[in-house]
């Protein structure tokens, strides 16, 4: 996994609450058996005026000029600023895959849906929760100033504005550690193999039916 440390980038304001994972990456693109190739279809329904389907030639698509991602001033944005309950709905990890492939490695919102929040960390992305009022301020500042950039400093757990204000955010120590070091948590869990085996031995007595072989 790619490590995340400090990131400075153009902010793209997505001024909507309850953006669901169906919107982030629509179901027709989930048919892929790969982890890549989702970036061009990020927010497909909003980004294009024609209907998207897998395997299209992107150059033939009809761009929706009104959608924020398509505005020239937000090209190259790496920080997505959104409203509350971002990433609700389906558990699809294709959502963070699509965001990250497009170029967003940071998403700032007043709140996130649990599964999406968790999925971000597995993919070298940092979801940042900031107060509703702060998000509102940042949203306005982004819209008012072309080329508006923010810095997200994971080590210090702050978001820094161009004028030097700092907004602190919370992040779990373990998730932070993994993200800072780009660690694969399967490897970390496997270091505890003995504890897992001990647990299984104990439960084979207590709840033996759990271990019935469904392949039989």
């Amino acid at each position: 996994m790619q490590a995340y440390n400090t990131q400075t980038g153009i902010v793209c304001p997505l001024d909507r609450a309850n953006v669901d994972t169906d919107q982030i990456i629509a179901k027709q693109f989930l048919k892929s058996i790969k982890r890549t190739g989702f970036g061009v279809n990020l927010f497909d329904d909003w980004r294009y005026l024609d209907e998207g389907y897998p395997g299209q030639d992107p150059s033939t698509r009809v761009i929706n000029p009104d959608f924020v991602l398509n505005k020239p001033r937000y090209q190259g944005a790496t920080i997505l600023l959104a409203r509350r309950n971002f990433g609700c709905g389906s558990s699809r990890e294709h959502a963070p895959w699509a965001l990250s492939e497009y170029g967003f490695r940071t998403v700032i919102a007043p709140s996130f849906a649990d599964i999406f929040y968790n999925n971000c960390f597995k993919n070298g992305m940092l979801p940042i929760v900031l107060d509703e009022a702060i998000v509102d301020t940042l949203m306005k500042a982004t819209v008012a100033n072309e080329g508006y950039e923010l810095t997200a400093d994971l080590e210090r757990q702050v978001v820094i504005t161009p004028t030097g204000e700092e907004y602190a955010f919370e992040v779990d120590a373990f998730r932070k550690h993994c993200l800072l070091n780009g660690l694969d948590d399967i490897g970390l869990t496997l270091q505890q193999s003995d504890a897992i085996k001990d647990y299984e031995h104990k439960m084979m007595q207590k709840t033996p039916w759990i271990f019935n072989d469904v392949r039989a």
Partner: peptide, 23 residues
């Protein structure tokens, strides 16, 4: 019972466990 993402599907396959924070 709860839903998980694909990285966690892999994690469960490999370790039969998940790293979780209590709700």
């Amino acid at each position: 019972a709860h839903g998980i993402g694909t990285s966690e599907v892999e994690h469960v396959l490999a370790t039969q466990c998940l790293i979780q924070k209590k709700s």
